[in-house]
Structure formats: structure tokens, C-alpha cells
Amino acid sequence: MPRVAFTTFAILKRPYGDPVVQGFDDLTPPTFAQAEGSPGFVARAKESPDQSHLTNFSRDWGEWGRFEVPRFYTGGRTDDTDSRASTLSLWTDLESVFAFVYSGTHRTALAQRHAWFLKPEWPTYAVWWVGDDEIPTWADACARLEHLHEHGPTPSAFTLRTAFAADGTPVRVRGLAESRSTGA
């Protein structure tokens, strides 16, 4: 059965460690814990253990591939200059992704994004379907974000508001209509 790949990408106003973005950095561990405990969560890209001395760009991400960023990122690649925030995960269905994104700690972080991130001129996330035995790579995530930026939502890369089923047909994500009435 196909699974949902979900990637996020944003550029911080300042590099990690700066007080301007510390609130975001502080929410990262509990947000990852929320994702991992969410219904429908399958896995997320994590670096191999004992690599805290390496930058994200140098760490071993195993099956998730070499760490990459979309062309929208022109910032630094060292611990002192890294200002990008990106994630890559697998889910069982679109509704599970939606429920995670718009609830709990992630929703709290999402509501504060304007304080921490540059105003994007690119998609901040992309969704696409993968086979049940496929692990998306960071290169796949970059390609999907760039595709979404260039072509808008298509079955190859889409948003939760303009989504597609695994067979490529347009689909409405359950929960989206309710969230529109509550402002999510």
C-alpha cells in the first residue's frame, strides 16, 4: 500500500543558536516527539547516532540519503551559519499528516513561524506518494519542493489543500473543510 512522503523547508531569520530563533530550536525536540507518537506516523529522517559533532550537511542519514537542500537555500552550511529548517517523514495517509501539522506542539510552532522564519517565496512543504517499500531521500524532497514551486500542485508534488490520491486523482483531505471554518 502506498505511503505519504512529507517534507518541510524554511529559512530561519538567523542561524541556529541565535536568540531570535531559539524558541523554534527549543520546540524542535517536542515536535519530533509529537510526530513520532502520532497515529499514521511511519518514520522520519534521522541522522545516525553519535554524529552530534558533524553538521547536518555532513551527517550520515542512512536510507534517507545524503543531506541536501532545495535551490532556494543560499545560506551557510556550517554549524555557525546553518539557517535552514527541514524535515522528511513517512506517513500512512494524508489525514494523519494533516492531523499532526495542525495540532499540538507543531500547531504552536506553526503559529509563531513569522517570528523565526523569512517570508517564503517558495513552498514550505511538499507531499507525495511513495511505494510501501520506498524510503524518500533528501534529494527527492528537494526535487519535489522545486517541482511544486515551478508547476504548482500536481500528483508528483502537492499540498494538503490541493491534494491527490495515490492514483493521481484529486482528493479532499478529511479535516481540511473543518479547519477552514476554525481558521487553521
Rank of each mutant, 00 (worst) to 15 (best):
D60W: 08
D60F: 07
D60Q: 09
G62P: 08
G62W: 01
G62S: 15
E63A: 15
W64K: 03
W64P: 02
W64E: 08
F67T: 03
E68Q: 09
V69H: 08
P70M: 02
R71Q: 04
R71N: 03
R71G: 02
F72P: 00
F72R: 09
F72E: 10
Y73I: 03
Y73K: 04
T74Q: 14
T74H: 12
G75P: 03
G75Q: 11
G76M: 13
G76R: 14
D79N: 11
D80E: 11
D80R: 11
D80L: 08
T81K: 13
S83V: 09
S83T: 13
S83Q: 15
R84A: 15
A85H: 08
S86Y: 09
T87Y: 05
T87F: 08
T87L: 14
T87N: 15
L88G: 10
S89L: 11
S89Q: 12
T92S: 06
T92D: 05
T92C: 01
D93F: 02
L94Y: 11
E95L: 02
S96V: 02
S96Q: 03
S96C: 04
F98C: 01
A99V: 00
A99Y: 00
A99K: 03
F100N: 05
F100E: 05
V101N: 04
V101W: 05
Y102Q: 01
S103F: 04
S103R: 10
S103V: 00
G104D: 13
G104Q: 14
T105I: 13
H106M: 07
R107W: 11
R107Y: 11
R107A: 15
T108A: 12
T108F: 09
T108L: 12
A109E: 13
A109C: 13
L110R: 15
Q112L: 15
Q112K: 15
R113I: 05
H114K: 11
H114V: 05
